[in-house]
Write a protein that binds this DNA or RNA. Structure first.
Length: 551
RNA sequence: UGGGCCGUCGCCAAGCGGUUAAGGCACCGGGUUUUGAUCCCGGCAUUCGGAGGUUCGAAUCCUCCCGGCCCAGCCA
């Protein structure tokens, strides 16, 4: 697929300028650096598309690096899931790294900082440090430990490494400026003691480096040229640069910050997403209503559409809110082009065509794609009894209704025009069956002397296959669910509707899991990658068709 | 005057001193259509948060003002 052409953005402008000036010897190397502490979501997709996309467009490369510096939160389960998600999105990393690969080098660099009198061991409690740090408007005060001798710092730091102290007894801090207006520069912590098992290094270490210290060094060791991160790290850039200026690293990458994604009716905070899962408000991380990559995938979204979306929303420093319609349009654009058409009836009403013989059976040929001959065709059986959707019949139609009404005509898609002569109801007054006659002179041609505007999808009652079709809608009614008092106020009670008695055309039953289709007049659907099996047809609706009929 | 950042159409977003202020989404027409889909054609910012200033010329440069976001983890 051809993704839409790149729009200019400030990062590409910076890179163009760098290339023009011969910076970095013309190399462009980026990295996507998730912490393996959860599942990736559509906000990460923006970062992935940016980093891998930049590398692609400039003939450079992009590394995948797991920022595994906090062993209490991280797990191999997540790093494996992240690799799968990145691959699914269609990107290949050049090198795979872990911040933990650099623990030895990071330790040596820290010793260098101590020797240069640029770092010291702090023995105050976290509480005391917070007090001494000052406030947003007042400068901080130096710690009594700030002027320990280099020898003592060296000794203490080594003993921290050797596990001689317990969590919280000491930390290693950079010696910068306790009065800085930028709180990140008020002697930030570089190392803390954590006597826990690390997902990769096990119990080798009892001290772990902090993000601010690790990230810049990791970037430099990998010869990253442009280190792209989100806006909240702008204040950290001086620290990023400070560390690299103090150390003799092979390179000094440039950190550039862009705005994170905000999507209307969606919540991307990891903490709240966990809450949704833990409170069973959704069925798990891959619930089709979740904004996680695995959720979107299960819902029926495609990598092509997601990449297109990331390109369309652009990269800026504005705190932008993207409307859902942008994502939906990307989805429809892709699937309109690629998905084969099928017919499925969500909520069947039986139609008996009384003008046909009881055993009438006729094979019709349906094109798989109206705009693409190469998609081929398939046979569709037509019989005396068919199902149509209950939405397509009304005894009391709203204005401009173009479907079946008592005494009215409608075309069965790809078949004959039928006329409704009789409405059969059960004891409760519910319509259970329609008796119609067909006009035999309307197959493949317009009816004589009148216009029939409505077209309705259908499935042969004899040949149709039962299916469960899950309809999804936005998870939150609120535009910004994070601002809502509680989930109870924000969640859309109709975010999922299960159509348990749907009937699908026979050719659909054999579809492989994760195959996309357009159900004509209904939307784009995918076979569920977990629940769709031989003998059990399960489809998820990714998105409806565009509907300009004011209902 | 704590520090940092951002304000271009309903929502995104190009633009970087001389353009009729791109494009997409949304919306509103109209045409094609056996999917109320797709496709096509047309409409949609005399104006760039505001006010001054510099300039022959300003969304683009300067000043001030207004509005919004981020920061006080031994998280990332």
């Amino acid at each position: 697929m051809t993704d839409s052409k790149p729009t200019a953005n400030f990062i590409r402008n910076i890179i163009d300028e760098d290339l023009k000036n011969g910076k970095n010897d013309g190399r462009v190397v980026t990295r996507f650096p998730p912490e393996p502490n959860g599942y990736l979501h559509i906000g990460h997709a923006k970062s992935i598309c940016l980093n891998f996309g930049i590398a692609q467009q400039y003939g450079g490369s992009c590394n995948l690096r797991f920022d595994d510096t906090n062993p209490v939160k991280e797990d191999i389960e997540y790093s494996e899931a992240i690799k799968a998600d990145v691959s699914w999105l269609g990107f290949q990393w050049n090198e795979l790294h872990h911040a933990s690969d650099y623990f030895d080098q990071l330790y040596d660099f820290a010793v260098q900082l101590i020797k240069a009198d640029k770092a010291y061991v702090e023995s105050s409690s976290a509480e005391e440090m917070r007090t001494m740090r000052g406030t947003l408007k007042e400068p901080g005060k130096p710690s009594p430990y700030r002027n320990r001798s280099i020898e003592q710092n060296l000794d203490l730091f080594e003993r921290m490494k050797n596990g001689e102290f317990e969590d919280g007894e000491h930390v290693l801090r950079a010696k910068i400026d306790m009065a800085s207006g930028n709180i990140n520069m008020r002697d930030p912590t570089l190392y803390r003691i954590r006597k826990v098992e690390h997902m990769r290094t096990g119990d080798k270490w009892s001290i772990y480096p902090m993000y601010d210290y690790t990230h810049c060094v990791s970037d430099a060791l990998e010869n990253i040229t442009h280190s792209l991160c989100t806006l909240e790290f702008e204040d950290h850039r001086p620290l990023y640069d400070w560390v690299l200026d103090e150390l003799q690293t092979p390179s000094h990458p440039q950190q550039i910050e862009f705005a994170r994604l905000s999507l209307e009716h969606t919540m991307l905070s990891k903490r709240r997403l966990i809450q949704l899962v833990e409170e069973n408000l959704v069925d798990g991380w891959d619930d089709p209503r979740m904004p996680t990559i695995i959720g979107l995938r299960r819902r029926g979204f495609t990598p092509e559409a997601l990449r297109d979306f990331c390109e369309r929303i652009g990269i800026t420093k504005n705190d932008a809110w993207i409307e859902m319609s942008v994502l939906e349009t990307c989805m429809r654009d892709h699937l309109n082009r690629d998905a084969h058409r099928r017919m499925a009836v969500l909520d069947p009403i039986k139609v008996v065509i009384t003008s046909l013989d009881d055993n009438h059976e006729q094979e019709l040929t349906f094109s798989n794609h109206p705009q693409d001959e190469s998609a081929g065709s398939r046979p569709i059986p037509f019989t005396k009894e068919v199902f149509i959707d209950s939405d397509d019949f009304s005894e009391d139609p709203p204005p401009k209704y173009q479907r079946l009404v008592p005494g009215g005509e409608v075309r069965l898609r790809g078949c004959y025009v039928i006329k409704c002569n009789e409405v059969i109801k059960d004891d409760t007054g519910k319509v259970i069956e329609l008796h119609c006659t067909h006009d035999p002179d309307t197959l493949g041609k317009k009816p004589e002397g009148r216009k029939v505007k409505g077209v309705v999808h259908w499935v042969s009652a004899k040949h149709g296959v039962p299916a469960e079709i899950r309809l999804y809608d936005r998870l939150f009614t609120e535009i910004n669910p994070a601002k809502a008092e509680s989930f109870a106020d924000a969640i859309n009670p109709d975010s999922r509707t299960i159509m348990a008695s749907a009937i699908i055309e026979p050719s659909l039953a054999a579809a492989e899991p994760e195959t996309h289709f357009q159900f004509e007049r209904l939307g784009y659907f995918v076979t569920d990658r977990h629940d769709h099996k031989p003998g059990t047809a399960v489809f998820n609706r990714a998105v409806t068709l565009r509907d300009t009929w004011a209902k």
